[in-house]
Design a protein around this nucleic acid. Structure first.
Lengths: 151, 151
DNA sequence: ACAATTAATATTGTTCGCAATATAATTTCC
DNA sequence: GGAAATTATATTGCGAACAATATTAATTGT
């Protein structure tokens, strides 16, 4: 009889593409934690700062579009960042539905310290072809985002 | 003066390898949700079932080692799965520190329905070289897990 | 044998992440 | 110009995910 360990079993954990992505994300998040803690940021908060350091101000919606997160996630996260003094939140006078997110001086200054983060994370052996891997996952993200938006 | 938009800025969001992994995981989780809901499973619960369908019973520790999760995550998750009737939890009589996790009949039967999950998720266009991508991410996971354990 | 150490899991507190829903402002369309 | 539809954000409720700590059982050293 067929067992659950057959090579062509579609449910083998090691055949799931999703699982290594899930595991890598958890492991990376665990690695970023101690590095970002001295900056007073969590990993998703760090991503918000990366976006704001590139372009500021942004609306909640534009941040969500860039990071693939919705307001249910962003609103409380941004409130915590506001309480920590990193960002400002205010209604757009021209369209009161929008909330405009900007950097405080403290938030802008934090960029200097954050410059060390990437190399700190990458210290130690970096796997072969990490650049190519990044590009492949970016394509996957684009495809998933496109398919999700159509569904 | 140097702006934050320079091509070699280490803080550009699009240069971060971590971000596409994070985004892909979120997008995939969002896609699995509706597919798994009829089975009464969340995505991490589905992963636990995949492991148990391969080999049963398992301890909390062996599940955590396989999925790169600790007891703080697994204990409440397994309790919810027990409450849902998918699994059993009991102390190992030979070593009362261990909690042994097994499948109920309902949990075993669920495998039939789960057989359709992978193809349902993969329906639609699959990106070029998805196999190779899986292997690359698996290598990254192995490296990260190794480095984290040594730290 | 028994105190000290180690191992396995559980608990607590905080922060995501999302679906579903609610609220309020703006556009559209007649 | 005003009702209806749309847009943008917020709220609620639930399920992860993890650090730090606690609890209990097994193992080790003397």
């Amino acid at each position: 009889m067929a067992t659950s360990r057959e090579r062509d079993d579609p449910l083998l954990l090691d055949r799931q593409i999703c699982f290594p992505l899930y595991a890598a994300t958890n492991l990376l998040n665990r690695r970023y934690g101690p590095v970002l803690r001295p900056l007073g940021l969590t990993y998703p908060q760090y991503l918000v700062m990366l976006v704001l350091w590139e372009e500021e101000p942004q609306t909640v919606g534009s941040l969500g579009a860039r990071l693939y997160l919705d307001s249910g996630t962003l609103t409380p996260l941004l409130k915590r960042m506001e309480a920590a003094g990193h960002i400002t939140r205010s209604r757009d006078p021209d369209d009161e539905r929008r909330v405009v997110v900007g950097l405080t001086e403290k938030g802008r200054a934090l960029r200097e310290q954050a410059l060390h983060v990437p190399e700190t994370i990458a210290s130690g052996r970096t796997p072969e072809g990490i650049e190519e891997l990044g590009n492949s996952v970016r394509k996957l993200v684009a495809l998933l985002a496109d398919q999700n938006s159509k569904a």
